[in-house]
Design a protein around this nucleic acid. Structure first.
Lengths: 227, 227
DNA sequence: GGGTTGACACCTAGGTGGTAAGCT
DNA sequence: AGCTTACCACCTAGGTGTCAACCC
């Protein structure tokens, strides 16, 4: 209902080259074969169908669901840095119309400083390490505090964002004349788009959060099975 | 009371070379200037005077106090791996005599497999990173399970151990013919020696743990100030 | 008797949405 | 009216020593 973004991806795994639409890309072999699979995809899609909302607070709030991926196709012995950022989907500001239970455009978005990067705390690490288990960004926090000093991701409330995931291959002996663009690749999962909010707007989102986030168990009234 | 080891170090900071008693050591410059200072030294000494005991369990138990150090003298841009291990102080097995409140030798220690290494989870890291704040091994756990599968440190109960701390300089381009011995240095603080136990023996140790470990606050009867 | 184990109550530490008050 | 903030009760997750039971 009331979704504004592209249709969801049916792919189980995704490559950065395919995303560019270029069959023979000019990426370094250490990144060109990297495949990334979104974890908890079914849950993400459940939220996405309602229009995902993520709380932002001054102190910083975790995302739920957390952004987690399974990675394959890395060079096991090569070193990689993994990171995330968030790009505005558009320059619009949104407003939730309770009477119609839908999101409306409410003008132009505030101008915002260029987004921060969030490096996965285990970076840098070898390909073998990254591939052997799910890579989780569950420590990442979202804030609406423009002066945040804790390294959280700064977002504008009531604006729509697309989380992005980046894999950077760290060359053992970097060239002066670096071909940096060849050494990284990026991944976006449309079903992880969300609107940043300071308080939940859509009551069905609230209920799905309560039903699926263990930390919100205190607010459950019915069994999680009922969902 | 009843201490069997060497006298405590009065040094605030300690170098690996001085420990070897060699004024001109053959260490690489990246490690030869490294100084290490034990954090919470006063607390360690308080325990040491009573005869420190550390609980070991099948599932693994943290140390208290945790082994924490402040490091200086590293090459800020050089890469280091930090790790700990535990060496038996002797091959004796101890027994606590409640009537005399003292530790007695109770025979030969069990033979044990060579000790494990515990790599600090932030390893490898640059000198600048290690030096900018206290390096804590608070996630390290002790176990008496010889078949432990969780990477905990395996110790024999009723045996005395000396924690050791090692700094390894990671060469950017390692030589085939590696001078590995030049690239690391080790530190031992006598006041961190302890006897591994499955249950506390000396009641004064128990009381000091309760008084100083926040997680044991539930057992406090008097104010911590009284200590 | 000496040592070990596991269940337990009681903590620390921190992640939830609810709620009422505050801001613009 | 729309949005934000601070505080709160209620959780998860896991670190304490205690104690009774157990083993050798």
């Amino acid at each position: 209902m009331h979704r504004h973004h592209l249709s969801q991806s049916g792919e189980l795994s995704r490559s950065c080259c395919a995303e560019q639409g270029s069959p023979a890309c000019s990426k370094a072999p250490q990144v060109s074969r990297v495949r990334v699979q979104l974890e908890m995809q079914a849950l993400w899609q459940q939220f996405d169908q309602l229009g995902t909302e993520m709380i932002v607070t001054k102190a910083g709030r975790r995302m739920f669901p957390a952004f987690q991926v399974r990675i394959s196709g890395m060079d096991p012995s090569a070193e990689y840095v993994l990171l995330m950022d968030f790009t505005p989907v558009d320059d619009k500001r949104y407003r939730y119309a309770f009477h119609s239970s839908s999101w409306l455009v409410a003008g132009r978005a505030d101008i915002s400083a260029p987004g921060r990067m969030h490096f996965h705390p285990d970076s840098p690490g070898r390909g073998a390490q990254w591939m052997k288990q799910t890579v989780s960004f569950d420590a990442l926090k979202l804030t609406n505090n423009l002066l945040d000093d804790n390294g959280h991701m700064i977002l504008n409330s009531m604006q729509r964002y697309q989380p992005r995931f980046h894999v950077i291959y760290v060359e053992p002996a970097p060239h002066c004349h670096s071909h940096a663009h060849r050494n990284f690749c990026s991944f976006s999962f449309p079903e992880t788009q969300f609107i940043a909010v300071t308080a939940y707007q859509n009551h069905r989102i609230t209920q799905l959060k309560i039903a699926s986030n263990p930390f919100a168990k205190g607010f459950r009234t019915t069994d999680p099975q009922d969902w």
